[in-house]
Computed example of a mutant assay.
Amino acid sequence: MQKIQPIHLDEQLCFQVYSTNKKFNHFYQEALRPFDLTYPQYIAMLTLWQYAPLSVKQLGEYLHLDSGTLTPLLKRLESHGWITRSRSEADERTVIINLTDDATHNKREVFKRVNSCFEVLGLTEEEKDACSQTMQTIEEKLDQYNHEV
């Protein structure tokens, strides 16, 4: 019988990703606190700053989130004055998300706070690109595996 070697916690790539993610979340929690934004709200805002107006379905496709997860997040963003939601004139079943003037005005300040992450990390552009490429490869391989299972 083949002896199975234990895998140590500090050798687990999944644990390294998990641990790093927790630390990123803490960084973003502090960076976004002055704007009363959570990280999920921030990534929604990033997408909207880039592509608005968007339907809820389109936003969900960008973020890999379903409407059941997005709806409470969008309600909070709307109640805090970041977005507006309205029914599409072409199809009343479709909800369109737009940015408010405050969201457009605060974009630069949010980016200033969040971009300090690169100063904290001290990564060169090449190192950042390499990390990003590695994470993208991992994500693609996991997607491939999950579609096969």
Rank of each mutant, 00 (worst) to 15 (best):
Q2N: 08
H8D: 06
H8C: 07
D10T: 14
Q12Y: 02
L13H: 02
L13G: 07
K22E: 09
F24S: 09
N25Q: 14
N25Y: 09
F27H: 05
Q29N: 09
Y42M: 02
I43T: 10
I43M: 00
A44R: 07
T47W: 00
Q50K: 15
Q50S: 11
Y51P: 03
A52N: 04
V56G: 00
L59H: 04
G60W: 09
Y62K: 13
L63R: 07
H64C: 06
D66R: 08
D66F: 02
S67K: 13
P72S: 05
P72Y: 06
L74H: 02
L74N: 03
S79L: 05
I83W: 01
S86T: 14
S86C: 07
R87G: 02
E89W: 05
R93P: 01
I97A: 06
L99G: 07
T100A: 07
D101H: 05
D102V: 09
R108Y: 09
R108V: 12
E109G: 00
N115E: 12
C117R: 08
C117H: 08
E119S: 06
L123K: 04
E125V: 13
E126A: 12
E127P: 04
K128F: 15
A130S: 07
M135F: 14
I138K: 00
I138S: 01
E139P: 00
K141E: 13
K141H: 06
L142D: 04
L142V: 15
D143Q: 13
Y145E: 10
H147D: 11
E148A: 14
V149F: 07
